[in-house]
């Protein structure tokens, strides 16, 4: 049963990373324009050089 002392913290940490990513995504307003973001990835405007 010692394996539990590894597995439980690992699963919690992994879940926690997911939660942290979700919180970060909300904080940085990434759910404001889901349709726009889905389409923006297809534009070729900034393929060769980053947006100034």
């Amino acid at each position: 049963m010692e394996i539990l002392s590894f597995l439980i913290p690992i699963s919690l940490i992994l879940g926690g990373i997911g939660l942290a990513a979700f919180v970060w995504a909300i904080r940085t307003k990434q759910f404001d324009d889901p349709a726009g973001d889905a389409n923006r990835i297809l534009t070729k405007d900034w393929d060769d050089h980053p947006r100034p």
Binding site: S11, G15, G18, F22, V23, I26, F31
Partner: peptide, 21 residues
Amino acid sequence: GRDLLMRLGVAFFSMMNVMLL
């Protein structure tokens, strides 16, 4: 809306982990 979504996200995370246990 963001506030509710945040609480929903936290509840989902907990639900999944507590359910496994």
